[in-house]
């Protein structure tokens, strides 16, 4: 198996799906000859031509509106929004149109499409190149929301997303776009099933839920906790909607303690939903209150980014809280 980066994994997934299905088209800003500002679509235009790898005018709303029209017509568009922070002009098309099309037409019209977008902090990108908008989308019925945390999943999940009959928001953790490399199958048939979480580290004392670039932080926090004799379980959700609730409940039932981890702001964050589900369905197994580690409720900062971003020591503090309750 070749050892590749997450960027290459995305690129490979696109190439394989475009080779397998003429209906798959890529469109967005700078995705053509430039290959995308992160190079996720590098070389696609050479292989598939300008008709299927389209440099659009600069309008996110137009890109998603166009992709919806293409999907309605029968194509499988994979639009790229250059940064998740720029997705808001398309929010209406995504939430009012793409997400509701199947429902409002009684299943007559559907939008099988994947909106790819790099998200998250840690690249010194300030307010508008760093945000984590997942909760806005997980709150909208009809959307599937996927967040890979490594190259293996990025490729397998993106291929699964492109084959999905439902519209998918595919959030790519750009901080780990280029590291670390990982063995990823080159097999056309390999996909990672949407809706299944992965246990990244087994443990018996506490559970950390996480996704995207925060998986690595959770792993580091568990290493620190292990030095204190506490064995943590890291549950990488991989798909936020539909949630693998079974995996969540199973892990918490096993450990009895839950720390949720996300880099998006804390209030009304996605992890709050996890916390509510565990409180509703498994409070009897809890040996300590749930702790949420998240970004702060401030606009994403530039200079003080390192303070904003959840880090292993901050997660460890939450682990200490649940372990010593």
């Amino acid at each position: 198996m070749p050892e590749i980066t997450l960027v290459q994994a995305v690129n490979d997934a696109l190439k394989e799906e475009m080779r397998a299905d003429d209906d798959v088209v890529v469109l967005g800003e700078d995705v053509g000859v430039n290959g995308g500002v992160f190079r996720c679509t590098a070389d696609l235009v050479d292989e598939f031509g300008e008709e299927r790898v389209i440099d659009t005018p600069l309008s996110e709303s137009g890109i998603i509106g166009a992709a919806i029209g293409m999907a309605l017509y029968g194509l499988k568009p994979v639009p790229e929004i250059q940064f998740a922070d720029f997705i808001w002009p398309a929010f209406d098309q995504i939430t009012s149109e793409m997400a509701k099309m199947r429902y409002r037409s009684g299943g007559q019209f559907t939008c099988p499409m994947v909106v790819r977008t790099p998200y998250g902090g840690g690249i010194r990108g300030g307010h508008y190149h760093s945000q984590s908008p997942e909760a806005y989308f997980t709150h909208t019925s009809g959307l599937t929301v996927v967040v890979p945390s490594d190259p293996y999943d990025a490729k397998g999940l993106l291929k699964a997303a492109i084959r999905s009959p439902d519209p998918v928001i595919f959030l790519e953790p750009k901080r780990i776009y280029r590291a670390p490399k990982q063995d990823v199958p080159a097999d056309d048939d390999y996909v990672v099933e949407i809706g299944k979480a992965a246990v990244r580290r087994e443990g018996t004392d506490f559970t950390i839920t996480c996704y995207g670039a925060m998986v690595e932080v959770a792993m580091k926090a568990c290493a620190l906790a292990a030095e204190k004799g506490w064995e943590g379980e890291v549950l990488d959700l991989r798909t936020l909607v539909p949630l693998d609730e079974q995996a969540l409940i199973a892990s918490v039932t096993k450990t009895g303690r839950l720390v949720t981890l996300q880099e998006a702001p804390k209030f009304s964050g996605y992890s709050s939903e996890l916390s509510a589900i565990v409180a509703e369905k498994a409070i009897d197994v809890l040996e300590a209150p749930i702790r949420r580690v998240a970004g702060f409720d401030v606009p994403f900062p530039f200079t003080l980014e390192h303070v904003y971003m959840p880090h292993a020591e901050r997660v460890l503090k939450a682990v200490e809280d649940v372990m010593t309750f």
């Binding site: 137009g62 509106g65 029209g69 293409m70 017509y73």
Partner: peptide
């Protein structure tokens, strides 16, 4: 926009 996309 969807009209435009379907025409595309």
């Amino acid at each position: 926009s969807q009209t435009m996309g379907a025409a595309w």
